[in-house]
Design a protein around this nucleic acid. Sequence first.
DNA 1: GCGCCCGATGACATCGATGTCAACGATTGG
DNA 2: CCAATCGTTGACATCGATGTCATCGGGCGC
Lengths: 336, 336
Amino acid sequence: MNKMVTLADVARAAGVSAKTASRVINGDPQVAPATRARVEAAVEALGYQVNVLARSLRRGHDNVVGVIVESVRDPFFSEVIGELEQLITPRGFTVMVASNTRGSGREREIVEGFIQRSLVGMIVTPQDADYSFLRSIRMPVVFIDRRPRNLDADVVLADDRGATLEGVNHLARYGHRSIALISDALDVQTVRNRYEGYLDAMREAGLPVDPSMVRIGCLDADMAEKETVDLLHLPQPPTAILSTRGETSQGVVRALHRHDATDVAVVSVGDFALADSVTPAITVLDHSPTLIGRYAAERLFARLDGESGHPITTTIPVPLIARGSGELPPRAAVSG
Amino acid sequence: MNKMVTLADVARAAGVSAKTASRVINGDPQVAPATRARVEAAVEALGYQVNVLARSLRRGHDNVVGVIVESVRDPFFSEVIGELEQLITPRGFTVMVASNTRGSGREREIVEGFIQRSLVGMIVTPQDADYSFLRSIRMPVVFIDRRPRNLDADVVLADDRGATLEGVNHLARYGHRSIALISDALDVQTVRNRYEGYLDAMREAGLPVDPSMVRIGCLDADMAEKETVDLLHLPQPPTAILSTRGETSQGVVRALHRHDATDVAVVSVGDFALADSVTPAITVLDHSPTLIGRYAAERLFARLDGESGHPITTTIPVPLIARGSGELPPRAAVSG
DNA sequence: GCGCCCGATGACATCGATGTCAACGATTGG
DNA sequence: CCAATCGTTGACATCGATGTCATCGGGCGC
């Protein structure tokens, strides 16, 4: 019954042209006070609401920022989104989200879907897709967490290799020689870098890399839990575990608690809820989602404000926060 | 340089009218195979991308579902969003999110902003705003977690009062008489209901409600932690704590661990990460975000598919999951 | 052989807001 | 007293895709 009220309706009610009504809506100062008041009264009376679609079509762009993450459910990414939203909203933009689930194969489809919406900009967590199709795009796009394949663009990254490197060093410093790795699947670049950091650090520390100690492919907490249990059942279990993601670390912690093996040292790349409340509290390499969001927004705004130079890579620090679990002595030392 | 390629460009390149090109894009069967092929070739050659804004303007609605939650960062809500996205995307809709931060006063503004975008539907976590302005809206709106003020609409709720009621009963069954409440602020209806459940259950169990045991207004984990510490320092500390939200429960747990008071029984309304891994594991009343998301999507789809009856309230169950912390005997019994 | 119907296609209007440009009355400077 | 200027305002075209309706050629039934 209440058909959409258009600007033309408002104009008619106020006895002016649509253009003038438009001026009032947009706060154009070039309108006589009396006219303005009449239009405003009409807007109020009719309950007029702008049609953003029409406006955006005319303007050529929609005041929306697209955010593509691996999974909205992952607390890491939901924190990124939260930070982005907090910074983006005050600029008058809305956030559109999409999860690019691992291996869905819909990566390009999702990105193109966003492009078709004439967004003002995008923040993307790339997976393995070929991004060369974005070569000549005009819309600013900032990549986070990983580099896009075949595209030179703004990226905000953590020092992944350095993180695991420091993790191993830290554990080695406390006497550990048998350090297991619980890792995500290697098809993600970030994961590969962390894996390399682990290998390099082990080599540099002169520690042997036992293949049975390296558990690749733990996609979630449950899989990490299973692998950890498996590690504990080895004839020679590891004395320390380095987990490369907050989510997998939760699985590791759960396994250790259920099997009374909390004397195994743990270092997690990525903080997570209650990491500081379990016993012992978990030592983490703080791969901060907040910082990633903040810097990504900064890059995006710079481009929106007209910055035009070469693509920039922002690398965020990954400080180690010692809480106890990473400073445990090796088990053998305890029993010996 | 690469100006936007329009349907007219494609049509020109294929030697047909814009309308025919449009038909091909939309899979209209009324197109001769040869013509279709020519148009598809032109689309490919020019790298044409539909302009969704124009399409949506013409169609009168945009294939986007708006989701408004209290905070994207809250794992509870990010799980809701994740579930919604998973169900909504296969229908060809995209998700637009907004956080309606407590007390921001921007509630109506956010909702109206979404309305102006001609969305196909909305899922809203209402706060205290007066929602009567949505009386005559045509777009389907489903409210979650709380009822909107002054509006009769589809709502998906948990049995909040029943949850805390059961929580208190559970603790009382294990012998607790001094049960503290760590609660969010009472300006949220959900919270009020949980508060009432606590009061009613205490009364029914014949337990006195000591005002110093009731801590209202814990907005986040930190505040809950502080209040918990304060409770522990009372001359007569509680032997059990009922926390009304996953997030506040994390603060409670942290406080108990830091103050070696893990013999205080805990029941949390709302599950949270690692609740099952701390020692003792936390007994929860599983206020499931996944279910809320699922039922909300179901409601929305029903309305989109033309269902037109009276507003429906869906109440989801809040089962108790005993994990240990809620089954501890009262401290006094231990020491006495 | 004539008229009807159907598949295929296009011309044109339309969705609602806004950019462009011109018009108009009033004021001001010379 | 005329022209230049300024503040207001509106007519019209436009953004890009699509709904409506008409057209056109040909196959088919009688």
